[in-house]
Structure formats: structure tokens, C-alpha cells
């Protein structure tokens, strides 16, 4: 981890004159490259920009105006009011649930993950290799493959339809254990640990006095991965939760999409949940993650996040 960050940091420090990669591109090649990359920027960027502008317009303005026209901020306030009035303010409740589940899984996950990664990296014990293999396997299997079996299991022990059925499975964070394991194995000075052991530190003291204080970069990385995965967690709570007061925002957004006529323009109802309101609810989910992304993109480029994009 640390050396990966270092190689990344050293990249911009290369002298400006030696831009060897650019050699042999030629003016035509450079132009083709720029045009292609700009077209791609339209593909990736335009839908997000549209979503950001959608709550500023009324339903009629959305169809009649230019797609990227800006309506008014007053209209955003109106959409916000309609959204929070929906079903006695249940949207705010979903938002609070989302925060509770996300940070519950994050904190519990970190409390379990950091000692496990540390133990795997610095100690030798029976079953260690088996545990590493099981960690690798479970981190690569798509989490959606486990959702139905998890539901069957948790309904057998009568935990389904409780907040725990969402928080506990998401606190199981094998990718985090793998990252912590690699981090501690490559960045902890072994001599320091040995010296502290001779001075009479026990293993737990080593972890809290040496391991944890050196974990800042690791903590940032794990928080980023866990937050983005859990904030958007949909399939698991959708299957586990039955009581709409327990839903998180993604499942709540699904209720807005499927339980109202917002996306069925032919069904006219008095309920003021229309495209703009649903788009605003979608933004509540997208914007926090997008901000975290902007801040943490360097983790991904440093190569530290290999394996983070499993679906």
C-alpha cells in the first residue's frame, strides 16, 4: 500500500521535459484521441448533469424544455417539500436508516477487520492459510450471489426483517481484511515489533500502540470502500426487510419508483411525486458517494483498490 502510494506520488515529479509517452502520437493522432475522449465524456457526464438539473424543473418543463435547461431553485424547494411530505415524512426516516446501517456496518466492520488483518499479517497460527484462502474466495464471489442464501439462513434464525439482517452481513468485509493484511504485512517494520516484544509488550499492546497508529492510510481506504458499498446497498435490504419503516434510501427510492405513478406518465394521480421528486431522491443517494469519489480517486489509481469493483 505504502509503496504503491509512493510510486503514484512520484509520477508528477518527473521532469516536464521528458514526456516520453507523448512521442509518436502526431497531431492527427492527438486530435483523434481528444475527440474520442470528449465523446466519452459526453456519454459518462451528460446523464449525471441531466439528473442534477432535473429537480429544478416541473414535469411539463422536463418534457417541453431543452434537456439541459435550468428551471429554478424555488422548484427544487418545492420538490423537496413534496418528497418529505410523502407518506408522513418516511423519506427522512429512510435517510436516517441509511446513515445508521451504513455507519453501523462500517464501525463494526472496522472493529473486526483491523485486528483480523493485523493478526494474519504478523502472527503465525494454525488455520491461518485456510482463513486467507477463504477470505480471498468470499471477497471475489459477487455479494449478490449470497443474498438469497443469506435470507434463507437469517429467516431460519428469525433475524430477517430486523436492522441486524442488513448491518451484520455487511460488517463481514473480506476485501477489507485482505487490504489490511497486505497493508500490515508490507508496511509494519518487523524490527520494531520484535524490539517491542523483547521489551515485554504483549501482542494486543503491539497492535494498539504500533499497528493502529500506523493505520491512517489504511483506515481511509477501508472507510471509502465500505461506505460506497453500503450506502448503495440495495439487493440485501430489499430481500431482508419487509417493514417499510426499516427500509434504507435505495429500497425507499425503489418504493417511490414503483409505488407511485412518477414514472408512469399515463397514470394521472394527485400524489405530487413526479419525475423531479424521484430524481431528487436519486440525487440524495448519488451526491454523497460522488463527493467521496472525488476525494478518494487517488486510492484507486494508486492500484490499492484492485478488486474493489466487484458487483
Amino acid at each position: 500500500m505504502r509503496h504503491a502510494a509512493k510510486t503514484h506520488a512520484s509520477a508528477p515529479a518527473r521532469p516536464r521535459g521528458s514526456r516520453l509517452r507523448t512521442n509518436g502520437l502526431g497531431p492527427l493522432g492527438a486530435a483523434i484521441r481528444v475527440v474520442l475522449l470528449l465523446l466519452l465524456a459526453v456519454f459518462f457526464g451528460l446523464p449525471l448533469l441531466w439528473l442534477l438539473l432535473a429537480p429544478t424543473k416541473t414535469n411539463t418543463q422536463l418534457t417541453d424544455w431543452m434537456p439541459l435547461a435550468f428551471g429554478s431553485f424555488a422548484r427544487v424547494g418545492e420538490a423537496w417539500k413534496n418528497l418529505t411530505d410523502f407518506s408522513d415524512g418516511v423519506v427522512l426516516r429512510w435517510g436516517l436508516n441509511s446513515i445508521f446501517y451504513t455507519f453501523g456496518s462500517l464501525l463494526l466492520g472496522l472493529a473486526v477487520t483491523l485486528p483480523a488483518g493485523y493478526g494474519l499479517a504478523t502472527l503465525r497460527f494454525a488455520g491461518r492459510r485456510t482463513l486467507i484462502w477463504l477470505t480471498l474466495i468470499t471477497m471475489i464471489i459477487p455479494s449478490s450471489a449470497l443474498v438469497l442464501p443469506l435470507f434463507l439462513e437469517l429467516s431460519y434464525v428469525r433475524l430477517a426483517n430486523t436492522p441486524w439482517s442488513v448491518i451484520l452481513p455487511a460488517a463481514f468485509f473480506p476485501f477489507g481484511v485482505y487490504l489490511a493484511y497486505i497493508y500490515y504485512a508490507t508496511s509494519l517494520p518487523n524490527d520494531l515489533l520484535a524490539a517491542a516484544r523483547i521489551d515485554g509488550c504483549n501482542e494486543w499492546q503491539l497492535f494498539t500502540n504500533i499497528g493502529l497508529p500506523l493505520s491512517r492510510a489504511l483506515l481511509g481506504l477501508l472507510t471509502f470502500v465500505s461506505f460506497t458499498a453500503n450506502w448503495n446497498n440495495y439487493f440485501l435490504p430489499y430481500v431482508m426487510l419487509n417493514n417499510s419503516r426499516l427500509f434504507n434510501l435505495p429500497v425507499g427510492l425503489q418504493v417511490l419508483m414503483t409505488g407511485t405513478s412518477a414514472l408512469r406518465p399515463t397514470f394521472a394521480t394527485d400524489l405530487p411525486i413526479r419525475r423531479a421528486e424521484v430524481a431528487l431522491a436519486g440525487l440524495l443517494l448519488v451526491v454523497p458517494v460522488a463527493l467521496v469519489f472525488l476525494y478518494s480517486q487517488r486510492f484507486v489509481v494508486s492500484g490499492a483498490l484492485t478488486g474493489a469493483t466487484k458487483e
Binding site: 465524456a41 459518462f44 449525471l48 448503495n232 440495495y234 427510492l253 425503489q254 436519486g282 480517486q297
Partner: peptide, 16 residues
């Protein structure tokens, strides 16, 4: 710009 849509997942992606 290419990276940001990664923030869109599940129901939000379908909505979009």
C-alpha cells in the same frame, strides 16, 4: 468524469 457515474448504483442506475 468517467469515474463519477460509479456513484450511481442499483435503483438510482435504473431510474437514470
Amino acid at each position: 468524469i468517467y469515474f463519477l457515474p460509479g456513484a450511481v448504483a442499483g435503483p438510482t442506475a435504473v431510474l437514470l
